[in-house]
Amino acid sequence: MGVFSALLDSTAVILLLVYVGMALIATEFFVKARGIAGLLGLVSMVLYFTAAVEHLSLWMVGLFVVGLTMMIVDGKFVQDGTMAAIGVLLMLVGLVMPTNDFLLGTGVACALILGLLSSLLSFRFLPKRDIWEKLTLRDRFTSEAGYSSINVTYQSLVGQKGRTLTDMRPSGTIEVGGKTYSAVTNGTWLKKGSKVKVESVNGTRIMVVEVKEG
């Protein structure tokens, strides 16, 4: 127990716990890791809070838990990255505040950011979550799979009007002519149910603009 306590008192170990914890939690968010990475990351964060218990308050843990919950909800249901980004900020505050020291707090913040960046390496080894398809609208079609015919169909949408089925942030889902499509705006965020017109099509990337009433 004495050795364990001594390890948790080490600044290097504290920073390592934050780095590893964030890297594993973010990996769970970015790719399909079957919950293993997320669980191990959570254990690492629990050890960190154990080390910081001297200056720890319940609201700090609460911020971290709320932030983590927002990441999970975004990754599983919303899948647009907005809630996850806010969640990371809340987790950052919840992790930095217990340090009660500027230098250590800065180190914890850097460890969290480095862990987040390191998790991007998981893209090379594990399948990505659907969120990346929605955010980037990557074109998966090839000529052999009928890309040409789909492109012609999409080109025919130019000038047609429809409505948004989801919030556009700036990507989302629209309905035109009774069919649904993934689309993006020129950077403008639109609410669900907004009237839109297809302004241009590039491959299978549909650009829409809001139709002002009146």
Rank of each mutant, 00 (worst) to 15 (best):
residue 71 M to Q: 08
residue 72 I to Y: 06
residue 72 I to N: 03
residue 76 K to Q: 09
residue 79 Q to A: 05
residue 82 T to C: 10
residue 83 M to G: 15
residue 83 M to E: 12
residue 83 M to D: 06
residue 84 A to F: 00
residue 85 A to G: 14
residue 86 I to C: 09
residue 88 V to S: 05
residue 89 L to M: 14
residue 91 M to D: 05
residue 92 L to G: 07
residue 93 V to M: 05
residue 94 G to H: 01
residue 97 M to A: 15
residue 97 M to D: 07
residue 98 P to W: 04
residue 98 P to Y: 06
residue 101 D to K: 00
residue 106 T to H: 11
residue 106 T to M: 15
residue 106 T to L: 15
residue 108 V to M: 05
residue 108 V to C: 03
residue 110 C to N: 07
residue 111 A to C: 06
residue 115 G to L: 06
residue 116 L to F: 14
residue 117 L to W: 11
residue 117 L to T: 11
residue 120 L to K: 08
residue 121 L to Q: 07
residue 123 F to D: 05
residue 124 R to W: 07
residue 124 R to L: 13
residue 124 R to N: 11
residue 125 F to S: 08
residue 126 L to G: 09
residue 126 L to N: 12
residue 126 L to V: 14
residue 132 W to G: 01
residue 133 E to Q: 15
residue 134 K to M: 05
residue 134 K to I: 00
residue 134 K to V: 01
residue 134 K to P: 00
residue 135 L to T: 06
residue 136 T to D: 10
residue 137 L to G: 02
residue 138 R to K: 12
residue 140 R to N: 12
residue 140 R to L: 13
residue 142 T to A: 07
residue 142 T to Q: 10
residue 142 T to M: 09
residue 143 S to A: 14
residue 144 E to C: 08
residue 145 A to T: 12
residue 145 A to W: 06
residue 148 S to R: 13
residue 149 S to V: 13
residue 149 S to F: 12
residue 151 N to D: 10
residue 153 T to V: 10
residue 154 Y to V: 01
residue 154 Y to I: 01
residue 155 Q to D: 14
residue 155 Q to C: 03
residue 155 Q to R: 15
residue 155 Q to H: 13
residue 158 V to K: 12
residue 159 G to R: 00
residue 159 G to K: 00
residue 161 K to W: 01
residue 164 T to V: 03
residue 164 T to M: 00
residue 164 T to C: 09
residue 164 T to D: 04
residue 165 L to W: 03
residue 165 L to K: 14
residue 165 L to E: 13
residue 165 L to T: 04
residue 167 D to T: 09
residue 167 D to A: 10
residue 167 D to S: 09
residue 167 D to Y: 04
residue 168 M to L: 07
residue 169 R to F: 11
residue 169 R to P: 04
residue 173 T to N: 13
residue 173 T to Y: 13
residue 173 T to I: 15
residue 173 T to G: 04
residue 174 I to A: 00
residue 175 E to N: 14
residue 176 V to F: 01
residue 177 G to W: 04
residue 178 G to C: 01
residue 178 G to E: 01
residue 179 K to Q: 12
residue 179 K to H: 09
residue 181 Y to A: 02
residue 182 S to F: 15
residue 182 S to Q: 13
residue 184 V to I: 15
residue 184 V to P: 10
residue 185 T to H: 08
residue 188 T to H: 09
residue 188 T to E: 14
residue 188 T to C: 03
residue 190 L to R: 02
residue 190 L to S: 01
residue 190 L to Y: 01
residue 192 K to G: 00
residue 194 S to H: 04
residue 196 V to D: 02
residue 196 V to C: 06
residue 197 K to H: 10
residue 198 V to G: 05
residue 199 E to S: 14
residue 199 E to P: 05
residue 199 E to M: 13
residue 200 S to R: 12
residue 200 S to W: 04
residue 201 V to G: 03
residue 201 V to E: 01
residue 201 V to M: 02
